[in-house]
């Protein structure tokens, strides 16, 4: 059975502790975490503004974010690659085929997802609850942080979705990272590589490791999401 063989191979790979495998896992984590954190830093304020405030052009901004959520990663990869290529406007920075380039592309993927989902979550927090906080002396920033805390279930779901999108992405990281062994190879690009070589068992084993990482991360987020459930609205 090919699937059982894959599981055995995955366990063996991890137990062998091959430096290359651990390097791929570390790079996967580094790029995914960096771009998720960057996505939160950029996306949370955008999401709050779109979900909780009224400004001219808000509907257009929401439409653009919703569109950005659906842009194929490979298109984002192409745009980032062109921007960072030697002839591109940021070519002088020499970032192409680096982890930084991968993080930039992945951040462009995670940000609209996180922003869009946070906007929806924050929009469900009653305006009067924020007015209540304001009436007790909250500044606009404190009011925004309270709204994000109140919408915690949705905010964590947004972070999980952003992380999921970057950790499973292959097109963009392949284009801007180049799948260079020991440098920019991540689990998804390694799976593509091994499949191309006909090493399906190994590719599947890598897939299982990727799924385990994703499951662990989502398990943590879900635990955190529900850790204060007794304080949620019944």
């Amino acid at each position: 059975m090919v699937f059982i063989e894959a599981v055995v191979t995955a366990v063996a790979l991890l137990l062998q502790g091959s430096a290359e495998l651990w390097n791929v896992i570390a790079t996967t984590f580094e790029v995914a975490i960096t771009s998720t954190v960057a996505g939160v830093v950029l996306g949370a304020p955008m999401g709050f503004l779109m979900g909780a405030t009224r400004f001219r052009g808000r509907r257009l901004a929401v439409a653009l974010i919703n569109t950005a959520m659906a842009i194929p990663p490979v298109v984002i990869g192409l745009v980032v690659m062109m921007t960072l290529s030697r002839q591109g406007p940021l070519g002088f920075m020499g970032l192409l085929y680096s982890k930084d380039a991968m993080s930039i592309a992945q951040t462009l993927i995670s940000t609209p997802i996180i922003a869009g989902l946070i906007a929806a979550a924050v929009a469900s927090v009653p305006y009067k609850l924020r007015l209540q906080a304001r009436s007790l002396g909250a500044s606009r920033l404190q009011e925004a942080l309270l709204a994000l805390r109140e919408a915690r279930l949705g905010v964590i779901a947004a972070v999980a979705a952003g992380f999921g999108a970057v950790v499973r992405g292959v097109g963009a990281v392949m284009m801007v990272g180049g799948n260079i062994e020991g440098q920019t190879r991540v689990l998804t690009t390694a799976i593509v590589q091994e499949s191309r070589k006909g090493e399906f068992g190994l590719a599947l084993a890598l897939g299982l490791i990727l799924m385990t990482i994703t499951f662990a991360m989502n398990g943590f987020l879900t635990w955190y999401q529900h850790s204060n459930e007794r304080f949620d609205r019944s």
């Binding site: 009653p126 009067k128 609850l129 007015l131 209540q132 906080a133 304001r134 009436s135 007790l136 002396g137 500044s139 309270l146 805390r149 109140e150 915690r152 204060n228 304080f231 949620d232 609205r233």
Partner: peptide
Amino acid sequence: DKTARMHMAAAFQSPYLFKGT
């Protein structure tokens, strides 16, 4: 004027309690 606002406090029709104790 945040200083002025700090002299005031409000309670509304719905209590709008925050999550927590």
